[in-house]
């Protein structure tokens, strides 16, 4: 399981890198285009309107790169200690942000419905990431293009509920899961959480103090 955990981190880091590289690539091309236009152009002055558009694009990419780098920073610090008081919503946001590229490759989108004001929970943050990653990854591997993976959070009966559901066509011969059911259950036990099925949805129940 430890090797699989490292494998999961590998995938997250790779996903981040690919995401950032895309932004960088856009910046580079836009930059290159501006250079070409200036060099080709006959006048000494630069065409303002056109360039403002380019620059706006570059700024957008920077904002995206900065945002995802911030998520990487948060994710990286989740590995600092084995137990910490964390916001489940923040953990989910980080993971989804860092998995966006993985989902995008399969043309699958994420939907979030993260209820505000949820109490903090004391758990192993990276283990929670890993558990949720396994569950989401298994959904991604089974969904056809244009599918949606939805994550919702709520609080009931003294426990935090994370509901993972999906919409879309199911692919029978989807890619193999990172984790098998036994591993997912094992992770849940290590985390002090409980996993159950609610129709097609998977529900993770996490106590406020695990």
């Amino acid at each position: 399981m430890k090797d699989l955990c490292l494998s999961f981190i590998n995938r997250i880091l790779s996903s981040y890198v690919h995401e950032v590289r895309n932004y960088l690539a856009i910046i580079k091309e836009t930059n290159g285009l501006m250079k070409d236009i200036i060099q080709i152009g006959k006048s000494r002055a630069v065409e303002a309107k056109q360039f403002l558009g380019f620059i706006g694009c570059v700024e957008d990419q920077i904002e995206r790169a900065a945002a995802i780098t911030d998520y990487l920073h948060r994710f990286a610090h989740r590995m600092d200690c084995e137990r910490a008081a964390v916001s489940i919503n923040e953990l989910i946001e980080e993971l989804i942000a860092l998995m966006t590229r993985l989902a995008y490759r399969r043309r699958i989108a994420f939907e979030k419905e993260l209820r505000g004001g949820l109490p903090l929970t004391v758990i192993n943050p990276i283990l929670f990431h890993y558990l949720l990653f396994c569950i989401i990854d298994s959904r991604l591997s089974r969904l056809d293009r244009n599918g949606i993976v939805r994550i919702a959070t709520s609080f009931s009966e003294g426990r935090l509920r994370i509901n993972v559901s999906s919409k879309g066509d199911v692919v029978q011969d989807g890619a193999a899961d990172l984790c098998r059911d036994e591993e997912i259950n094992g992770l849940a036990v290590d985390l002090g959480a409980e996993i159950s099925k609610d129709g097609n949805d998977l529900v993770i129940k996490v106590p406020v103090t695990a």
């Binding site: 920077i62 900065a66 911030d70 990487l72 990286a76 610090h77 590995m79 600092d80």
Partner: peptide, 24 residues
């Protein structure tokens, strides 16, 4: 190992911000 990976990844996040800031 996780802790050291975490430190590295955090270091990368820090580092990348500088060139992003410059581009900005």
């Amino acid at each position: 190992r996780l802790a050291s990976i975490g430190r590295l990844a955090a270091g990368v996040a820090h580092e990348i911000n500088n060139p992003l800031a410059i581009i900005n």
